[in-house]
Design a binder for these strands. Structure first.
Lengths: 96, 96
DNA sequence: AAAATTTGGTTTATATTATAAACTTGTTTA
DNA sequence: TAAACAAGTTTATAATATAAACCAAATTTT
C-alpha cells in the first residue's frame, strides 16, 4: 500500500535540487544555491550524494576566472525522480 | 520558491500514518502497524511524536481484555497535512 | 496447571542524516 | 596591499529514523 520512498530523494534539499534539474538543461552551483536558499556547505554535500547515486553529473569549469560547477540530471535521475513522485502520490492521496 | 516542509510530516512512517488517519475516523495501533508494515517500536515512537505535536490524539482502552490504542487525527493535524501536501506539490511540479 | 507463545505495545541503543560552522583558495575592490 | 568577496569543500554536531531488546498480560498448547 505504501511504497518505499527513495531515501536519496526524500530529503528537502536534494528534492529541491532534483526538481530544478528535472526542468532545465543544466544549472550551476550558485543558481541552485539561490533558488533553494541553502547554505553552500549543505548544497555541496547533497550534490555529492546525488552524484554518487548517479542521479546527476557535475562538471567543473570556469566562467572567466571564477570557478563554476555545473549540474545536470541523468536519465537515471529523471527516472528516479518520476518514480518518487508516483510513490509519493500514494501517500498523499490515501487521505482521500 | 520552495516552501519549507514540515519536518514532522516529512518522514516516511509519520506521513503514512497521517495519510491513513486523514481518511478514516480513527484507527488503532495494530491496524496502523499492518497497513504501514512498520515495526511496533518505530510506530510507537512516531505516534508519540505526532501526539506531542498535537497532530493526533491517542486513547488507550481495552478491546475485551486486550489493550488497545486508538489514534485519531486532530483538526491541527488535518490542517498540517493539507499544508504539507500543498507545499510538496511545489517541489514535485517544478520539474514541469 | 505449567510452559510456551502471542498480543500489544514501550524503552533504549545505534546508525544515518541533514545541516551549519569553519575553513580554503583564489579574485576583486578600496 | 589589505580587506572583502566568490565559490566551494571539509569537518563537526545535533537531530532522526529505525530496529533491537525488553515487558506485562493474555492466550494457547502440552
Amino acid at each position: 500500500m505504501f511504497p518505499k520512498l527513495d531515501p536519496l530523494l526524500h530529503s528537502e534539499l536534494r528534492l529541491a535540487v532534483m526538481s530544478i534539474l528535472a526542468g532545465v538543461d543544466e544549472a550551476d552551483f550558485t543558481y541552485l544555491k539561490k533558488q533553494t536558499g541553502a547554505t553552500s556547505g549543505n548544497l555541496s554535500v547533497q550534490i555529492d550524494k546525488l552524484t554518487a547515486a548517479g542521479y546527476i553529473t557535475v562538471e567543473k569549469g570556469f566562467k572567466g576566472k571564477m570557478p563554476r560547477t555545473t549540474c545536470k540530471i541523468t536519465p537515471a535521475g529523471q527516472e528516479a525522480f518520476s518514480k518518487y513522485v508516483e510513490a509519493l502520490k500514494e501517500y498523499l492521496s490515501a487521505g482521500k
